[in-house]
């Protein structure tokens, strides 16, 4: 009886779109997006990532970290808002592509966008790591803040309205959301990389014999450890990070080999790789590669999720059909 009931419920439940499908659509959306839309993303994210790397390096090593931490933290907060505002602009550009209509930009819309992002995004820096640590609500917390980026473009609704819509869509299609996070989330990549680095330090401190390992052996062992820790957590992110790391390692050596330029990378060998600055740089650049796809996925998810109630997808199809009809009959006339 219960089996029949559950199968009946399953029949009633609408089919959940596949994660790979939405990721494929996201890639195509990014490919077909004008360069200006991508430029909007990197105008916000690239300065933030760079500032974060400087902040990390300065705060973790500088003797004057305590003296300038306040001003630096304030600067980082402003950079974070700067990034979130531009990400919302980027998401708005993608949404315009999906909806086939271009919403006009004005000062009022920009102000509303800035207000929404400023009000809703900052707690995410605390909530998302906490949720990742607790595991269970991570997918919803992650999706909520991505949805705020996708929906809070200032085109409609105040802060409360955007938060309500984002929260409603955050729990939409959880299986798809989990797979998307597993494949694309920079947070899991970050967690995996930190875990691998921490594990490497722990293993080395527990086994003094490892001090005698040679550079290449070290590298191979560390690589294996990183792959073991990161690969199951973020397979696609791991591939991206491996490419970025290879670029950072190989490029100075190529410069040395081809142009004779001696840099600290070529002089210090593998020492230049095993430090947190290198690790964070790899993560930062990987984030810049992965996050646009994640944003595009959530733009599509939000569009499809809202369309279930508003029928916006049908309206878009109708609009397109009307346009085509007008074009066709207009041309014939």
């Amino acid at each position: 009886m219960s089996g029949a009931a559950s199968s009946a419920r399953a029949r009633r439940r609408p089919a959940e779109p596949g994660a790979l499908d939405v990721i494929t659509d996201a890639f195509h959306l990014l490919r077909s997006a004008p360069l200006a839309v991508l430029a909007a993303y990197y105008a916000g994210a690239a300065p933030f990532v760079l500032a974060f790397l400087f902040f990390w390096s300065d705060m973790s090593r500088s003797a004057f970290a305590a003296r300038r931490s306040l001003a630096a933290a304030l600067g980082m907060a402003l950079m974070f808002l700067w990034m979130k505002i531009w990400q919302a602009v980027f998401a708005a550009g993608l949404r315009d592509l999906v909806a086939g209509a271009r919403a006009a930009w004005g000062w009022r819309r920009v102000a509303r966008l800035a207000a929404v992002q400023t009000a809703l995004q900052p707690p995410g820096m605390l909530v998302i790591p906490l949720a990742l640590f607790l595991m269970a609500p991570f997918y919803a917390a992650h999706a909520f803040y991505q949805n705020v980026t996708a929906l809070g473009d200032g085109s409609g609704g105040d802060v409360r309205e955007v938060a309500r819509r984002a929260l409603r869509l955050a729990t939409l299609w959880p299986r798809q959301n989990h797979v998307v996070i597993w494949l694309l989330s920079p947070w899991l990549l970050c967690a995996g990389m930190l875990a691998a680095f921490g594990a490497a330090r722990l293993v080395v401190s527990l086994t003094p014999e490892l001090h005698h390992m040679q550079g290449l052996l070290w590298f191979a062992a560390a690589l294996m450890l990183i792959f073991l820790a990161v690969l199951p957590l973020a397979p696609f992110g791991c591939a991206v990070a491996a490419n970025v790391a290879a670029l950072l390692i190989v490029a100075p050596r190529m410069l040395h080999a081809l142009l004779g330029m001696q840099t600290v990378f070529t002089l210090s060998g593998w020492h230049a790789v095993f430090n947190t600055t290198f690790l964070m740089s790899v993560f930062g650049i990987s984030y810049l590669c992965l996050d646009p796809v994640m944003k595009a996925v959530h733009v599509l998810r939000c569009f499809a999720g809202e369309a279930r109630r508003t029928g916006e997808d049908l309206l878009v199809e109708l609009k397109r059909a009307r346009r085509e009809t007008e074009r066709k009959y207009g041309a014939e006339a």
Partner: peptide, 18 residues
């Protein structure tokens, strides 16, 4: 320009760090 500045910034970061 953005990519160039970013690459320059990363190079500068490593120089400072090392």
């Amino acid at each position: 320009v953005l990519l160039g500045l970013f690459a320059f910034g990363v190079a500068r970061l490593f120089t400072m760090r090392f």
